[in-house]
């Protein structure tokens, strides 16, 4: 217990100072959420690279939570879906169902190039399409995988903080 306390004290604050609030337009419905965005992540067919960086974005260094975004367990509790990867034929229906389970107003963020335009997986036989082809997308985040800074920026577009 003491050693943990020492470790905590020695480490101090890990979170880096927040970058300035990103410019650019916010989705209209995001304003309704008033600085609190609960997020349900859906892996629709990613290579799990984007998951690593989403993890980083919510890690202590980037600390996505400080802007009012939080990962939650159930889509019923969520305001936004964070979808990664191309949508495979097997995940198209689960993704639709997840979207349906979210109470309005709801937003969808497509994370990474696969989610935006299928990336290198375009044309594969198991791919149903990009996220936009299955559910409406409000925010897109570029990169393969996007850097955590980009993900945080995307989240801040939702929370406005």
């Amino acid at each position: 217990m003491l050693s943990l306390w020492r470790k905590i004290r020695r480490t101090g604050r890990v979170a880096e100072p927040p970058p300035p609030l990103p410019e650019g337009e916010r989705p209209e419905r995001a304003a309704l959420l008033g600085g609190s965005v609960q997020i349900r992540h859906v892996d629709a067919g990613s290579c799990n690279g984007c998951e690593i960086e989403i993890g980083s974005a919510f890690g202590p260094v980037h600390d996505g939570e400080r802007y009012g975004a939080r990962l939650v367990a159930s889509p019923r509790h969520a305001d936004a879906l964070l979808v990664t990867g191309v949508v495979t034929r097997n995940m198209a229906e689960p993704l639709r169902r997840t979207f349906d389970a979210v109470p309005a107003p709801k937003l969808v963020v497509a994370v990474g190039d696969c989610a935006r335009n299928c990336g290198v997986f375009a044309g594969a036989y198991g791919v149903a399409g990009a996220v936009r082809d299955v559910v409406p997308v409000d925010v897109e985040i570029h990169g393969c995988p996007p850097r955590p800074e980009a993900i945080v920026e995307g989240l801040r577009k939702l929370t406005g903080r």
Binding site: N90, V120, A124
Partner: peptide
């Protein structure tokens, strides 16, 4: 499993 089967080998 195989929910994220994209058909990578064929690509």
């Amino acid at each position: 499993l195989w929910f994220v089967h994209r058909g990578l080998e064929k690509l």
